[in-house]
Simulated assay, not measured.
Amino acid sequence: MDRIIGSRTFDFDRQVAVMAIINRTPDSFFDKGATFALDRAVEAALAADAAGADWVDIGGVPFGRGDPVSLAEELDRVVPVIAAIHARSDVVISVDTTNAEVARLSIEAGASVINDTSGCSDPGMAGVVAASNATLVLTHSNGVPRSEPQSPHYDDVIREVVDFLRDRVRQSEAAGIPRNRLIIDPGHDLNKNTVHTLEITRRLQEIAAIGLPTLAAVSNKDFIGECIDREQGQRQSGTIAAAVICIMNGARIVRMHDVPAAVDAVRLTEVVLGFRQPVHARHNV
């Protein structure tokens, strides 16, 4: 069944969406503030759209350890960017936030997806989304954003992730968010070590079996670096491989830093899966 998100329509049975990462933060683990300036963030979002991204994910507060960011500061970081992009493009805009008030004002500014990496830790989040037409990403996360990571333990990481996500889906539906406005994310590396994240990646089909579009946020994460011994800035090839593996195992949205490379990899994977035809079929004809 087609899903309308913002002004675009997605058939996740036969389509994989590329979500471009736009960090309006001075301390992003990957870009180190490269798009912190307002104009740079807007330019990066529009360039991602032009390169084939299906939507852009705007974040004002990294999940990882760091100093607290006030509500006023987070709003100042994300709302002007969203409004500027919305005025110039029909690309889907999501906001990466755990705060219900940031979500509400971002929706008013033009965001059509709330990407909550805390699994709706703010009790007001579901109500804000229910009162709008926005889509909510439900992410498995047991930790507290901006806190020191703890050494995680799972008896069965897949079972616990699936149970958590099913529970959040039930809560969201009870709050008034229809199922066709929910997306799930197993939370690669969020409160998980590399062994946990690898298990999620290889068994992603069991998470996708929940029956909702599954988002894989794998780009440049530490599990990739630890698997192939690559520091930040050297993980593009590993990132592409991880994203393709996730798609083959059921992911239908991939959250990526390098948009041109991601778009090429995703479109080729779609062709291999039979979701689309090759642009040309002239070889040896």
Rank of each mutant, 00 (worst) to 15 (best):
R3N: 12
I5N: 06
V18M: 01
I21K: 02
I22S: 00
N23C: 05
S28C: 12
F30V: 12
D31V: 11
K32D: 15
K32I: 11
K32R: 15
G33A: 13
D39F: 10
V42S: 05
V42P: 02
L46T: 02
L46G: 03
A47E: 15
A48H: 05
D49A: 08
A50M: 14
A51Q: 14
D54K: 05
D54T: 01
I58R: 01
P62K: 13
G64R: 05
D67E: 14
P68A: 11
P68F: 06
S70M: 05
E74T: 11
V78R: 01
V81Y: 07
V81W: 03
D90E: 13
T98M: 11
V102H: 00
L105W: 03
I107E: 00
G110R: 07
S112E: 09
I114Y: 04
T117Q: 11
S121C: 12
A126Q: 08
V129P: 00
A130N: 11
T139W: 05
V144C: 08
R146M: 07
E148L: 15
Q150E: 15
H153N: 08
L165T: 01
D167V: 07
A175F: 09
G176P: 01
G176V: 01
I177C: 03
P178A: 13
I184G: 04
P186Y: 07
N191G: 08
N191Q: 12
T194E: 10
E199G: 10
I210C: 11
A216C: 09
S219T: 06
K221M: 06
D222I: 08
D222M: 08
F223T: 04
F223Q: 03
D229Y: 12
D229V: 14
Q232H: 12
Q236C: 05
G238H: 02
A242L: 01
C246L: 03
M248S: 15
M248T: 14
N249D: 09
A251Y: 05
R255W: 00
D258S: 09
V259C: 01
A262W: 02
V263S: 13
V266W: 06
Q277L: 15
P278W: 13
A281C: 12
A281P: 04
R282K: 11
H283M: 07
H283P: 00
N284D: 14
